Amino acid sequence: MRRRSNRVAVESSSVVAATRWLKLTVAYDGAAYAGWQWQPTEPTVQGVLQDAWRTITQEEPRLTASGRTDAGVHAEGQVVGVETASTIEPRRLLRGLNALLPDDVVIRAVDPAPAGFHATHDSLRKTYRYQLHTGPTPPLFDRRHVWHWRAGPLDAERMGQGGACFVGRHDFVSLESVGSERSSTVRTITDLTVTTRPVDGGERIDITVTGDGFLYNMVRTIAGTLVEVGRGSKPPEWVAEVLAARNRAKAGQTAPPQGLFLVRVEYS
C-alpha cells in the first residue's frame, strides 16, 4: 500500500452547524486489504478512507458503503455515503483525499447527495463481475484479479445457458454462505451474461450479474456453480435444481475472492 508521491496541501475546513451529505465513488484493488469494513488490527479500505477524511476535515467520519466487500475483493464503483459539516468543495475533497490515500485506493468522484443519503439502504441495483482465466499458464499481471482455472477448458456457452436460470425473482438460499443473517433470501436478478475472449495463452471468462441485492458470497457461489456446468460435470438445467433445493450443499463451490469486482451501484 505505497503512498502516492504527488502530495497536495491539506486543507482544514471551518465547521458549521449545518451538515450536508456527499456520495463518494471509490475504486480499489482489494488484494492488500481485509475487506471494506474497519477492523482494529487489519488494514481495510474503510480504515484508510477514514484516516484520509479525518486528516483533511478534522472530523470523525461515519461512512456507509453500498456493500461490505470481503478480503481480496475489488471494486470499480463502490459507493460511500458521508454526512459532513465540512465546507470544502467536492473537487478539492477529491484532490485532497486522493493525495493522502494509498495508491491502491482511488476516489473517482465526490458528488452532492440528498439529505439522509444512505449508500446501503438507498441502492436499487448492483452489478458484479467475476473473472476467470483458463489455461495451463498462470496470468502473471492479472494473478490478483482472476481465478486461474487449471483443470481444463470451460464451455462459456453452457455457462451462459445455466446462468439464465438465475435470472428472475428467486429464493437464493442455496447460494448463501453462513455468516450473515438476512430477513429474506429472496432476490431479483435482472441480467446475467457470460463472455469470453482469448488472453495469455488461455481464455478470460467474465460472469457479469446485476440484481437488486445479493446474499453473503452469492456471486462467488454463482461463479462456482457455473464452473461445474462449464467443465461438463453438470448440465445447464441443473442450476434450476440447485435453486429449487434451497440447500447450500447442492450448489457449487464458493469461488476465490480475487476474481470478484463490484462494478457499479445504481440509485434513483
Rank of each mutant, 00 (worst) to 15 (best):
P61S: 01
V45F: 08
Q78M: 14
Q50D: 15
G81D: 00
D51E: 14
E76W: 12
E59F: 05
R62F: 02
Q50G: 12
E83K: 12
G81I: 01
G77A: 02
Q46I: 07
V73S: 03
L63Q: 03
T41W: 10
G81H: 00
G35R: 13
Q39M: 02
G47L: 08
A75C: 04
E60S: 14
Q39L: 06
R68Q: 07
I56N: 03
V80F: 05
Q58P: 00
G81S: 01
T69V: 09
D70N: 13
E60D: 10
E59R: 06
P43C: 12
Q78F: 06
L63K: 02
Q37E: 06
L49I: 10
R62T: 11
T55F: 04
E60P: 00
Q39R: 12
L63H: 01
P40N: 05
A75F: 05
P61N: 01
W38H: 14
T57P: 02
W53T: 06
R54D: 06
Q78A: 12
Q58A: 02
G47V: 14
T44I: 10
I56W: 03
T69G: 03
G72M: 09
G67K: 11
E42N: 15
G67C: 13
G72Q: 06
A52Y: 08
V79M: 11
E83G: 10
G67D: 07
G47P: 08
T57S: 09
T57L: 06
A71C: 11
Q39G: 02
A52V: 07
V73L: 07
T64F: 12
T57V: 05
V48D: 09
I56P: 01
E59M: 06
W53V: 13
D70F: 11
R68S: 12
V82A: 00
E76P: 00
E59Y: 05
L49K: 02
Q39I: 05
T41S: 14
G67M: 14
Q50P: 04
D51N: 13
G35V: 14
V82T: 02
E42G: 07
Q58G: 02
D70C: 10
L49M: 08
T55P: 01
G72Y: 07
V82K: 00
Q78D: 06
G35D: 07
D70Y: 08
G77F: 02
W38S: 10
T44G: 06
P61Y: 00
P61C: 02
V48E: 11
V48F: 04
T69K: 06
P43A: 15
P61Q: 00
Q37L: 05
V73Y: 04
H74Q: 09
V73P: 01
G47R: 14
Q78T: 14
A65G: 15
L63W: 00
V82Q: 00
E59S: 07
L63Y: 01
Q46A: 15
Q37N: 03
T55K: 14
G77M: 04
E76Q: 12
G81M: 00
E42F: 12
E83L: 09
R62Y: 02
V48G: 05
V80Q: 06
T44E: 12
